[in-house]
Design a protein around this nucleic acid. Structure first.
Lengths: 220, 220
DNA sequence: ATAATTTTTTAGATTTGTCTAAATTTTTTT
DNA sequence: AAAAAAATTTAGACAAATCTAAAAAATTAT
């Protein structure tokens, strides 16, 4: 994987996100998303085509090539790992992480990112519940709902744990929470984001927002 | 503190380092240090002068203004904190940290840097023994020699501890090592960088390279 | 103190990513 | 299917940071 400019990376990332669903991305949509003019988009698309990151035909929009998609996944990987780091280690709140991660994602040392990944315990979802691509670009295909976003008195089932660190797993084990455990929020405390939760059919326990944020659920 | 381009920041940092000792920095020295041509230096110095970061007079070199110096200290703070992070948390070796930190130092969120500082335990020296400026730009004026660089059988005195984290302080306390303790390396083990050290006059103990690296000494 | 050398600056060109305004192509409307 | 509207591209210009080549100033040598 070669080195690309910050601007090129931002284009690739934007195309990746816009491409979802549609079968090609229009110049205007890209201009809107990147806060720039359509003429600039055209220029850059020609350049990215020459570098084989996108397929592009005048007047018919663009798509990422395989190589472009792989690059996009690496940028997203960096972004989400940094978000995870900021939120988990530096105690940023979830709405503050995005802008800083937007900067950090362009530091492209592979060694840095892989070591950061390991240091964080190979988390599979970022603080917003979006999946983090692994070293090879493999990515879970669904966005998860965190327990934090679940209302009171609606039973749900644990489907994923957001991080594989020993500390979280040991805590969950002690609280008898695992994949497929049935949970129901009894009461949320807005003051500190903590909540009382019924585990299975009988026992209840208190979860902090940090812990609840790493418990991803499906509604029943 | 306003926002400056990556290039401007690199100029400011280079001037700061070249300025030490001399009373002005020449165009040629800067060109050498930044691997660029003297003509480019002249252009940029005019620009930095307009922004009041340097004082510059044609044919007579430049100096940082107070504002420029403050900016330089912030860039150096970022650089050294990231170096510390890479070495201490991500397990980079000391000769690998520089290049990555060179990238990370340009991410300019103050909140990020201050939180990183706190997370690392407000370290005062980076992995090379260079002092880390604090939030206000205050900086210890001496580079320290780490115990790692001390030869065998030469007594020395502990003068600083490189980081104030509870974990390191508790470890040092247990080993009876504090400021002004007399140490002498009995044997170094190149395999893992650990060493056997005489503490005071009698007791000996084993120190890992990670620990020894945070013990800064004066020769006796 | 004049000549030779070195250092520094100026002038004009280049690259990257952007812009505006005009031209072209596609899409929508009637 | 022609006219109108919308989307896209082209052409030419600009700012940032750089370059080369030539000119100017400062320094060193004789």
């Amino acid at each position: 994987m070669l080195n690309y400019s910050r601007t090129e990376e931002n284009y690739i990332k934007a195309i990746y996100h816009l491409e979802a669903g549609k079968d090609s991305v229009s110049t205007n949509d890209l201009a809107e998303s990147l806060q720039t003019k359509p003429a600039s988009i055209t220029d850059m698309l020609k350049k990215l085509k020459k570098k084989k990151l996108v397929s592009y035909q005048a007047y018919y929009g663009c798509r990422l090539t395989l190589e472009g998609k792989q690059l996009a996944l690496m940028i997203i990987r960096r972004h989400r790992l940094w978000e995870y780091f900021l939120s988990q280690k530096l105690d940023f709140s979830w709405d503050e992480v995005h802008d800083v991660a937007e900067e950090l994602e362009h530091v492209s040392s592979e060694k840095l990112i892989n070591k950061l990944d390991a240091y964080l315990g190979f988390p599979r979802f970022d603080p917003h519940g979006d999946p983090i691509p692994d070293e090879k670009g493999a990515i879970a295909n669904d966005k998860l709902i965190s327990l934090n976003n679940q209302p009171e008195n609606k039973p749900c089932i644990v489907s994923k744990i957001g991080n594989q660190s020993v500390s979280i797993l040991e805590m969950l084990e002690q609280k008898n929470i695992a994949i497929k455990t049935r949970l129901e929020i009894i009461k949320k405390y807005p003051f500190d984001g903590s909540m009382e939760v019924k585990v299975g059919r009988s026992r209840t326990t208190i979860l902090t927002k940090e812990l609840a944020h790493n418990i991803f659920i499906k509604e029943v």
